[in-house]
Design a protein around this nucleic acid. Structure first.
Length: 706
DNA sequence: CAACACATATTTTTT
DNA sequence: ATATGTGTTG
């Protein structure tokens, strides 16, 4: 570690001896300087940088958020930039929340949450601008527009197609088709001629305006379109995780930029793992060229041991931009398990030992895998072994049926033109009133109030407009709809369902209280907010944080760190998924996984994988880690180069094809078959009618025939 | 109408 | 590798 530090000092970037350069900060804002002085040279430079458009290439674990927070505080304290003239844009609510909390807590009580008006996700900031400073009326909307979620979008599209009898091909992939249409692709799949997609899109846009609803894309698009006229030009636009920016978000930034606007964009191109969702890999290059931006680098990683960081560097095109500050630490362990169940047993023992003998808190242990379903076996075993765990799942109110039903009911009630939500609420098989979607649509459209729930939906706004008192409003709303009567009291889930809905309404009322709006307008605004904060809403309702082992996909692990990281199931066919060797994104995903580890990294693969598509070989990525960094069960099965491995697999497949059936065997369940492959631990047999099956020799139930 | 040709999804997930 | 949805050919 000593030599690393001295090399770093010699580079002249560290400022211990040059602190006088920042004396003006010490003078002007002593308390800010107190935390500023602890930043490294690169970080300090990024914070005080004067370039109008700065692109900060923040390496993994280099203190990206710290720099971003200090930049905000520097602008506020030293440059006297008003907080309401700063746009801080993130991709997730979680990231926005973290930044806001850190800004507030780092500034010793001067800044409150209300000051951070335009700190949030691209979508929530767009929403805030659209419902305040931007004239949405010129697009045909009114300020109290509501938000159409994916289900609502699909339902509306289906209704238009059915009502107009439009000829639309590949209806099941309609979202994908709309997406491609925006990029100029009119044909899809085997199509030779255009269908009526353009008409559908036109009608869909008109229909959204008529109903005063925007989908998630509209928020971004309307914001950039309107702001090109110059209604709101912030002094600063600060963008987090810039590598995840997609084209329309870039346009939104472009629309908001005025002559006096500076931009500070922070991101790591090596952590681009969402390009399949629209972010473009060349965004740094595009941005630099378009705005003549200055690019700086944050290269110092404080998180991982130098061993782990060296391994990570093997996955980068330019490893020189990453410097380690920590000691060597433990070797990386490569482990071969028979299958995922065996690994889960092994891990539960290992984790118990770590926790009980070494005193490692459970939440310093992360288990990472490629697919959501890989969590199942760990959940089962950990439950049985009483190891506390938490699976990070994509969950919002859509995933809780009674809650989503209620959300749609309220959406329909606050916006009676939201027919799809009314239809959903009324015709839901479990919580609805037992009518078909068609009947429901007729009732709502004709204002047929003979049905109780229809009457309640249509009368909600006028009922609410007579109420001024927020106190006890949650109970009043619950009783107004008589929610109990729709929740089937005999159901075992009754209490839980009721609780979810009550908590959700409480959240809505809380929103009205803090924003001091009249209930009639407040519910609308609160619902819009809830749609933009889906996951956060659920987190407040559902799970309390506990000391538990964290299970998650590699994707979900981005931005997190653990002392102990176990990457599970690094098999050929899984990492990279489907053997896509040329897909750099899979490589970056593996890089993200490795770099989550602070002290200890273990990577496993399965000799008898139970996952469909997984081959019994280790992932080629394991072979890319330099040998001197790892301790492995079986070095010899590792291939050193991708090309070598590719040839090896090809050879193996060819050998398999030509295989002469050596040994006839019998199995209690599958009957008779022939051995087609065999290695140290496993044996593969071809059965008539069952196909290929592999068995561990240890548990082998096979008996030779002849 | 059967048979084939061709394209695409499968995995990852936020608002 | 497999399934699905198109479109074309015989």
């Amino acid at each position: 570690m000593a030599d690393e530090t001295s090399r770093y000092m010699k580079s002249g970037k560290d400022s211990c001896s040059e602190d006088y350069r920042y004396d003006y900060i010490k003078q002007a804002a002593p308390s800010f300087y107190d935390s500023f002085k602890d930043l490294n040279g690169y970080q300090k430079e990024a914070v005080v940088n004067e370039d109008r458009i700065l692109l900060l290439n923040a390496g993994v674990g280099s203190g990206k958020t710290t720099v971003l927070v200090h930049k905000v505080l520097y602008l506020y304290n030293i440059k006297k930039v008003n907080l309401s003239e700063m746009l801080v844009l993130t991709f997730t609510n979680k990231a926005a929340e973290e930044i806001k909390q850190r800004v507030i807590s780092s500034d010793g009580g001067n800044i409150s949450l209300d000051d951070l008006k335009y700190f949030g996700t691209f979508h929530s900031v767009a929403k805030a601008l659209l419902s305040t400073v931007l004239p949405v009326e010129s697009l045909g909307y009114s300020k109290d527009f509501s938000i159409l979620d994916e289900n609502g979008e699909r339902e509306l599209l289906e209704r238009i197609i059915a009502e107009r009898g439009l000829n639309i091909k590949y209806k099941n992939n309609i979202e994908k088709r709309l997406d491609e249409f925006r990029q100029g692709k009119r044909l899809y799949g085997a199509m030779k001629h255009e269908d009526e997609l353009e008409e559908l899109i036109q009608i869909y846009q008109d229909e959204k305006i008529k109903r005063n609803v925007m989908d998630f894309d509209d928020l971004i698009d309307c914001c950039s379109e309107l702001d090109r006229y110059g209604y709101f030009k912030p002094s600063w636009i600060i963008i987090d995780e810039f590598q995840d920016t997609d084209s329309s978000q870039l346009e939104m930034v472009d629309g908001l930029m005025g002559d006096g606007t500076s931009v500070f964009a922070v991101g790591d191109p090596n952590q681009t793992i969402y390009s399949w969702r629209g972010s473009r890999q060349d965004i740094f290059k595009v941005f630099k060229e378009r705005y003549d931006a200055v690019e700086k680098t944050l290269p110092v990683n404080y998180r991982s041991t130098s061993t782990i960081l060296k391994a990570a560097k093997a996955f980068l095109d330019d490893p020189t931009k990453l410097e380690s500050k920590r000691g060597k630490g433990a070797a990386i362990i490569i482990k071969k398990h028979f299958n995922s169940f065996n690994e889960a047993l092994y891990l539960s023992n290992k984790i118990k030992k770590l926790h009980l003998e070494d005193g490692i808190p459970y939440n310093e242990i992360g288990i990472l895998y490629r697919k959501q379903k890989h969590s199942k076996v760990f959940e089962d075993v950990f439950k049985h072994e009483s190891i506390p765990y938490e699976v990070s799942l994509k969950k919002d109110f859509k995933d809780i049926p009674p809650l989503y039903w209620f959300v749609r009911l309220i959406k329909a009630s606050v916006n009676i033109k939201d027919y799809e939500s009314a239809v959903y609420a009324l015709s839901d098989k479990k919580y609805g009133i037992g009518i078909t979607p068609k009947q429901a649509f007729e009732c709502i459209r004709c204002g047929d109030t003979s049905l109780k729930l229809v009457k309640k939906i249509l009368g909600f706004n006028s009922w609410l407009s007579d109420i001024d008192d927020v106190e006890g409003l949650d109970k009043k709303i619950y009783d107004y709809f008589d929610i109990d009567s729709y929740l089937c009291p005999t159901s075992i889930d009754f209490d839980e369902d009721r609780d979810f809905i009550l908590k959700f309404i409480k959240g809505l009322v809380e929103y009205i209280k803090t924003n001091k709006i009249r209930p009639a307008d407040g519910i609308k605004a609160a619902m819009t907010s809830a749609m933009l904060y889906g996951r956060q809403v659920i987190e407040q309702i559902v799970n309390p944080k506990a000391d538990s082992v964290k299970l998650m996909t590699l994707h979900a692990s981005k931005g997190l760190e653990f002392k102990y990281v176990f990457i599970s199931g690094a098999n050929l066919g899984v990492m990279p998924l489907g053997g896509k060797f040329d897909d750099d994104e899979e490589k970056r995903l593996f890089f993200v996984g490795i770099t989550r580890a602070k002290d200890y990294l273990e990577i496993s693969y399965h000799s008898n994988p139970d996952d469909f598509g997984a081959l019994p070989n280790p992932s080629p990525y394991i072979g890319m880690i330099p040998d001197d960094l790892i301790v492995s069960d079986d070095i010899k099965s590792r291939a050193r180069k991708l090309s070598e491995l590719r040839r090896e697999i090809k050879d193996k497949i060819e050998v398999k094809k030509e295989v002469v059936c050596k040994q006839k065997v019998s199995h209690p369940k599958y009957g008779e078959g022939y051995v087609i492959d065999e290695d140290d631990d496993t044996i593969t047999v071809q059965f008539e009618g069952y196909g290929e099956k592999s068995f561990a020799k240890v548990f082998c139930p096979l008996k030779p025939v002849d």
